[in-house]
Simulated assay, not measured.
Amino acid sequence: MLLRPVVASVLALVAAAGFLLPRMATAGEKPAVDLALMLAVDISGSIDLDEARLQREGYAQAISDPAVIKAITSGINGRIAVAYFEWSDSYTQNALLDWTVISDRASAEAVARKLTAEPITTARRTSISGAIQFALPRFAGLPYTALRRVLDISGDGPNNDGGPVDLARDAALAAGIAINGLPIMNGRQNSWGFPTLPDLDKYYEGCVIGGPGAFVVVAEDFASFDVAVRRKLILEIAAAPVPTPATRPRVIRAQTAGGYGQNGYDRGCDIGEKQSREFWRRRFDQ
């Protein structure tokens, strides 16, 4: 009998402080997550099988990294939803992971195992716009209520297939989806001899990323890809600026709220399409 007033007092305190705790979903409601993060990974012709494997392993290692798990569990709800697909041509998108919740080490390691168990493939052309268009309906069908929705695009070349990349980006922003980027400064032509883009980081800044807090993390090569991915995931999950010493991957934040770059991309967001037309014109002229 003496315990009843104490229990009542405790319950009152918990109820009064309820706003400090993550709210559980009631019947008919979608479970809440801090972030819905879709990872879109380039497997176009400039990426060989070994590099594609390095990318896949880089994401698997980063997702299960203790620092990334700490960032996930430190959120309001202590969990995020992740999806993963690989892309190349406008009609080539391979979904390896549907929306999956990560809330602890066990769930993070399960996702890592799922990614590394899938077969490695590569394709030919590069359609960032196709990747964005593939992602939009999957965000629309998200089975969770997310505080933020982010599409994370990594690749080693500009858009050269499908629709204009900036128009696809604008459609994502209109749907409330932010886009971050991880350009890989590979510097190596693909097996067809297709040219590279030396300022790919600026292209991503001006033509690909967008939304509040959008940013680019630069991977200088495939060997340092896992470090760049881990850095980017922590930034995305924490949604806060983090100092970037010279020994860490470069972070380029959008210069405007829309994330279009300070003055846009001075070579034009169709630079990849121009490169493609010139490349094929020269081949046909030979």
Rank of each mutant, 00 (worst) to 15 (best):
L2M: 10
L11W: 01
A12I: 06
F19H: 10
L21C: 06
A25N: 07
P31T: 03
P31V: 04
A32F: 00
D34F: 02
L35C: 04
S44V: 04
I47R: 06
R53C: 00
Q61Y: 04
N77C: 04
R79F: 00
V82Q: 07
Y84I: 08
W87C: 03
D89A: 15
Y91I: 15
Q93P: 04
D98C: 01
D98Q: 11
S107Y: 10
A110S: 15
A110L: 14
L115C: 03
T122L: 02
R124K: 12
S129P: 10
G130C: 11
A131V: 08
A135S: 15
R138W: 00
G141N: 12
D156N: 15
D161P: 09
G163I: 13
A168L: 14
A171V: 07
A172K: 14
I177F: 01
A178M: 13
I179L: 14
P183N: 09
T196A: 10
L200F: 04
E205G: 10
C207V: 04
I209F: 03
V218C: 07
F225E: 00
A228D: 06
K232S: 01
E236S: 12
I237C: 01
A238G: 07
A238W: 03
T244P: 02
P245L: 01
V251H: 00
Q262H: 05
Y265L: 08
R267E: 09
I271E: 13
S276W: 05
R277N: 03
F279K: 13
W280H: 10
